[in-house]
Computed example of a mutant assay.
Amino acid sequence: MSTTSLFIRKDQLATTRLHTATDAPLANGQVRVRIDSFALTSNNITYAAFGDAMSYWQFYPTGEEGWGSIPVWGFASVVQSLNPGVAVGERLYGYWPMASGAVLSPGRLSPERFTDMAEHRAALPAVYNQYFRCASDPLYTADTEDLQALLRPLFITSWLIDDFMSDNDFFGAKTLLLSSASSKTAYGTAFQLHQRHETEGIEVIGLTSPGNVAFCESLGCYDRVLTYDALDSIAADTPCVYVDFAGNGALRNAIHGRFTNLKYSSSIGGTHVEQLAAKGAGKDLAGPRATLFFAPAQIKKRTGEWGADEFGRRMVAAWHQFLGAVTDAKNPWLHAEHQDGADAVQAAYAHVLAGKGDPRTGHVLSLCRQPAGG
């Protein structure tokens, strides 16, 4: 057997190549999985852009200098097991390489999940090392696998951003500005924040490009949707919080420069990858320092305060509510587009990296399946 992977040049993200290697024998305690499908979103581009700074390249090291494997979320099936606690045929949800297969070292097994105990992952954030066993996973339903792959990790981040803001009393602001408003993490955050409109008076303003205004307005979770060049329609002295999903340095500078009562600036990720390294971005900013939001830290805080069971209960309830809105028959927010095979995966990656495409379309990819007719 062999495994095919998509390698990315770490210092030139548009450069990719396919790598096929013969599978090594498993060690005792390991399992081999076939990665059936995975989602590719702008969130994965963020993983690559911050790959060194946030250690994302370390989850699935390629062993080749300068080349990395971007982690993705999706579903896999166990095809070989030397671990008595994990059966061949078991279906798993979790964090995979962009590849046709992977090897895990399961430990800390429970009916719902296990942790990959591979030595090179020991110092990495625990949330990314957990694999959910679909047969007992409270968030799993077989008919929504595509939406889980596309939205589940992003929505958990969205839910945590909302919780973090509320936990800090919105830093004394009632208006939140969300950039890249058509992105999945942004509109998941807006969905959560919008529920606070009546009770807490929170106003959510989505910032986006002209071509995505209609889409963002159709979601119904933004109080206002503005193009990036329309910041002057918001009073400069508005007490506000900026939640930056774009990573666009020029936009961040503009917002920090305009709003004299900016209470907090939160950096979530980078959907505008060409702007991430913009000279001067984040330096000499007016107002508060732009602070990177790290979801695992809020998970750790809340599981400590609420307990793991209560944390899970709240998250599951929020997820099902969100999924109800996304799958509304009259106005579905998202549909999955399947692309199989190496050529299709490379093309989809280039498409997402370039920031192209319809926000209503989500890429669900597979390197283990061949395209129809192929």
Rank of each mutant, 00 (worst) to 15 (best):
Gln12Asp: 12
Arg17Ile: 05
Leu26Met: 06
Asn28Glu: 15
Asn28Leu: 13
Arg32Lys: 13
Ile35Pro: 04
Ser37Lys: 15
Asn44Arg: 03
Trp57Ala: 08
Pro61Trp: 08
Pro71Val: 01
Tyr93Pro: 03
Ser100Met: 08
Asp116Met: 03
Ala122Val: 12
Leu124Gly: 05
Val127Ala: 11
Asn129Met: 02
Pro138Ser: 05
Thr141Lys: 13
Ala142Trp: 14
Ala149Tyr: 00
Leu151Ile: 15
Ser158Cys: 10
Trp159Glu: 04
Asn168Thr: 04
Phe170Thr: 05
Phe171Cys: 07
Lys174Cys: 07
Ser182Cys: 05
Tyr187Cys: 08
Thr189Met: 11
Gly201Met: 06
Thr208Asn: 02
Leu219Gln: 02
Asp223Pro: 13
Leu226Pro: 01
Ala236Cys: 08
Ala236Tyr: 10
Asp237Tyr: 10
Thr238Met: 03
Tyr242Thr: 08
Leu251Tyr: 05
Arg258Leu: 11
Asn261Lys: 10
Asn261Gln: 11
Leu262Pro: 03
Ser266Val: 11
Glu274Tyr: 12
Gly280Met: 04
Gly280Lys: 04
Lys283Ala: 15
Pro288Gly: 06
Phe293Lys: 07
Phe294Leu: 09
Ile299Gln: 06
Lys300Asn: 14
Val316Tyr: 04
Val316Pro: 06
Leu323Val: 15
Lys330Pro: 07
Tyr349Ser: 11
Ala354Cys: 14
Gly357Asp: 12
